[in-house]
């Protein structure tokens, strides 16, 4: 479903992603781990073109993300094409990024109504269903600032799901949460995974990654160190850098 080939990304002179090759299959739960600054967020943000990349291909259902190729030259895709790809991928942020001037329900309805131009009545029903699914039926008319971090992040997940995306991208969805609120967000994600959603999850929650992932990718310094089933990555890593990293985060 997502094919990444020889992906390179620079911030000015800083070479952040240094040639990544990976395929992510439909229905797969794919976790990304690695030390701070290794490029995990950047990789995730390239997938829905929140960041440009300078070399290589990202293909989503076979179509190049963010660029079009004409006569061998690569040009930026039209804003409409870029937006179209983004609506097919939901994204959940570490800092939630809810719209503070809109209620919970309005946050969830914003994308389908304004971007996808779906009828409001239909969207309202969908949004209420999603909010029930994440356990927030009683908060629909609240403003985000009145909610706990865990509740805000569940709204963030509902907002992304409201676009009815084919893939969900999570960038450390629980890192900003108090420890006692992490569980409620992970439970929602587990339910999504069980329901067959394709998910790419950048996380520091190793036991969660181990439990829900089909595969885990270890990154360091903009490179893929190894990709394997969670039993292998966490039980018997093949690369010294993976073993070192895991030893450091566990202790």
């Amino acid at each position: 479903m997502i094919e990444v080939r020889n992906l390179h990304k620079y911030y000015g002179a800083l070479h952040v992603l240094r040639g990544m090759d990976i395929d992510i299959a439909k229905g797969e739960v794919f976790s990304v781990i690695g030390p701070s600054g290794s490029g995990k967020s950047t990789f995730l943000r390239c997938l829905n073109f929140l960041e440009e990349y300078q070399q290589g291909d990202i293909r989503f259902d076979g179509r190049l993300v963010g660029y079009r190729e004409t006569a061998g030259k690569r040009l930026r895709a039209s804003p409409r094409d870029i937006a179209a790809v983004r609506t097919r991928m939901g994204m959940v942020f570490q800092s939630f990024n809810l719209f503070p001037h809109k209620t919970v329900l309005e946050n969830v309805m914003e994308g389908p109504v304004i971007v996808q131009k779906k009828p409001e009545a239909v969207v309202r029903k969908l949004a209420l269903d999603l909010l029930e699914q994440v356990g927030l039926s009683d908060k629909t008319d609240q403003y985000p600032s009145k909610l706990s971090g865990g509740q805000q992040q569940r709204v963030g997940i509902a907002r992304a799901l409201a676009m009815q995306p084919e893939v969900m991208l999570f960038d450390e969805p629980t890192s900003a949460l108090d420890p006692e609120l992490v569980g409620e967000v992970l439970d929602v994600m587990k339910a999504l995974a069980t329901g067959g959603m394709t998910m790419v999850i950048v996380t520091h929650e190793m036991s969660f990654a181990r439990e829900v992932s089909d595969r885990v990718m270890m990154m360091d310094e903009g490179l893929i160190i190894e990709v394997d089933r969670p039993e292998v990555i966490f039980g018997n890593p093949q690369q010294a850098r993976t073993a070192d990293f895991l030893r450091r985060v566990v202790h």
Partner: peptide, 17 residues
């Protein structure tokens, strides 16, 4: 906050929206 732009763009909004 730049995160507001990220969130808006991630649900498919263009610059104007």
């Amino acid at each position: 906050d730049k995160g507001q732009w990220d969130a808006a763009r991630s649900i498919g909004m263009g610059y104007g929206q």
